[in-house]
Design a protein around this nucleic acid. Sequence first.
DNA 1: CATGAATGAGCTTTCATTCAT
DNA 2: CATGAATGAAAGCTCATTCAT
Lengths: 208, 208, 208, 208
Amino acid sequence: MRTVDPVKHEEKRQAILAAASRCFARDGFRGGSISTICAEAGISPGHLYHYFESKEAIIRAMAEAYMGGAIDHFTGLAPEPKAIASVLAGVVSDTLRRDDSGQPLLLELVAEAARNSELAQVMQDHSRALRGLIGDLLSAGQAAGRIDPQLDPDLAASILLSLIDGLRAMTIRSPNSDLDDIRAVVDTLVKRFLTGHANCRSDEVTQG
Amino acid sequence: MRTVDPVKHEEKRQAILAAASRCFARDGFRGGSISTICAEAGISPGHLYHYFESKEAIIRAMAEAYMGGAIDHFTGLAPEPKAIASVLAGVVSDTLRRDDSGQPLLLELVAEAARNSELAQVMQDHSRALRGLIGDLLSAGQAAGRIDPQLDPDLAASILLSLIDGLRAMTIRSPNSDLDDIRAVVDTLVKRFLTGHANCRSDEVTQG
Amino acid sequence: MRTVDPVKHEEKRQAILAAASRCFARDGFRGGSISTICAEAGISPGHLYHYFESKEAIIRAMAEAYMGGAIDHFTGLAPEPKAIASVLAGVVSDTLRRDDSGQPLLLELVAEAARNSELAQVMQDHSRALRGLIGDLLSAGQAAGRIDPQLDPDLAASILLSLIDGLRAMTIRSPNSDLDDIRAVVDTLVKRFLTGHANCRSDEVTQG
Amino acid sequence: MRTVDPVKHEEKRQAILAAASRCFARDGFRGGSISTICAEAGISPGHLYHYFESKEAIIRAMAEAYMGGAIDHFTGLAPEPKAIASVLAGVVSDTLRRDDSGQPLLLELVAEAARNSELAQVMQDHSRALRGLIGDLLSAGQAAGRIDPQLDPDLAASILLSLIDGLRAMTIRSPNSDLDDIRAVVDTLVKRFLTGHANCRSDEVTQG
DNA sequence: CATGAATGAGCTTTCATTCAT
DNA sequence: CATGAATGAAAGCTCATTCAT
């Protein structure tokens, strides 16, 4: 009757979650099977149920981890108020750069949330948190006079998140696009949107 | 020697497709089963295979119909060159208005296309077509001096489509948002993006 | 209310049977489907049931036709009593020559008869008839002093038939065999068996 | 960390194979269903797939086991060179004696091999091996002066195998035959064929 | 005579989950 | 902690057969 090492337990849990991510990214939530995940994680199916009570629970945990990552990403951001528009434009357009193999997962997650209320809850909570973080940045930018003061920070944040989601869809819709070109235009779009200023080409704005 | 009405055949096919849409919207592509679809369509499981050779084929047909609808939507648009920015802004923000029960389907479709190459093909073809239609509108707008001439029409179209996709995700991410507020901001975003002009609040732009 | 032309009816029946033969030879009795047969015969599934009451009935009719062909083959044989051993040896070894695409059917038929009593009956009746025909030839040969008089004609006939069946299996077991070589040895075997004489090499016997 | 006994696994595999043999012998390969096999083996349908990856795989394994048995049978044979003709005659005619419930399976197997290339390969490999074994016996007999030296051992072996196959068909074609009578004649046939000597009635030859 | 729409049982296979060891 | 044997429901799909037209 040994005591369980909670650290090891958590590590294993994370390893399983990572394996699940890979499987789900490859095969989708319905297509990825428990036995595939077990094979990928190098454990037996019976054992997996010591860490997660169901497939559902894995998906939920994964969703939390996935979106938690996004929150960390934005939390880490603490730009000079003057540069906020540029930084946000960069964050959005960087969606297209990250060679995140989990890319497809986000869309899968959103689609699944549309019919799984528990997942929907997780998603809403995280989206609210994200909106809050971005909204704060925008407010700071407005205080510094670099963001159009008439924009509602929360609504604008909401739309920026939508744009990020949409760009993930784009890589599937139009996989042959030149990502650098797209990024430049996205950059322009975000800056024009946030500043409300004329002629906000990337070069000019970063100069100003 | 009675060759039966091909019109009836096509009608039935469409009815099955409609039933499938409802089921897939409710349960997802993997979750929606042939037997559910048959129940919804009021036919026997065996009979469905007189109309579609596989579940895959149903999904493909659905994808084509779904995206074909979008193309029709944009093809129907023939705005005054002067009003193009406004009209496109309206189209984008209207994504949020349509109580299209097929809403969740689009994301599902994109997620599925990420791992189903045949579906990916359908999607790419239609996306290209859509981009072309919107790009033409933008070119016309540029010729009329109402759209920023420095924007590449195809890239800009691509991003508008992404935005539409992203807005669909938003209704899931933040179902409690006030859609009218969102629409107003989206409107602003699109106009600022396309015109490149300062202070492009909806009211002002439509006046100009 | 026209009167049915019985000749045309019978022709169609035969055409369907021929189509069924091709399908069954290709796919087996269980594997060959009614709809495949209909496609091959160029008729609709519903119509097929005007000619045969069930798939079973088709198989039965086919079995009868198939074995009837063998009976015709042997009935047509009316050799000089002196030559009977040679002729029979030729008939047996010719099994390997006929490019009868229905070859596999015979084995299929026998295997099926092992578990389908109705088919078994058909098969037994025809086998008895065949044995009778061959037995008569053997008796004639014995009367002419060219067949070992100690052989029971019916038993010997039975074994010759077995040999024919077995040779059909051989083309599947050893498809790369040189059929001419095999035929020569089969020839020797049959002659030695029937005559009971020493050194019955084909050349010598036919001379003698 | 308990890796379970691979012996038990193999035993279960064999038990399933045995159950499958019984089902296939009764219903044929296409007629015998997975669920019937599972019922016969006393396991659940899902569980069967821990042992065999498909129905096809079961059939293949069965074919291998079945034909492997025949090889063992012949490998076990190490007769005095003098007695080879008798021994082989006995082996052939014993086909009719064995109350092997798998009898019908062989024909089914051959028929199936005619349209299943993987099965055909298994069958050809085993047939070649069998021919080799019998051919060696015949060569030994030839060296001992008891087998007609002009016979090609491989061809003769091929034909003996065919005869065995054919005798299996006979029990279906003519189930009312007196098997002992048949066996005696088969015995005669084989001896006459192999020795090439006159009057090789069983009694005489075994004396000589 | 002829069609093909329609059925529904049954097929092979997959999979989340449980449990004895 | 860890295994993998075992379950059974449900999946996608096929097919012989019937029937209105």
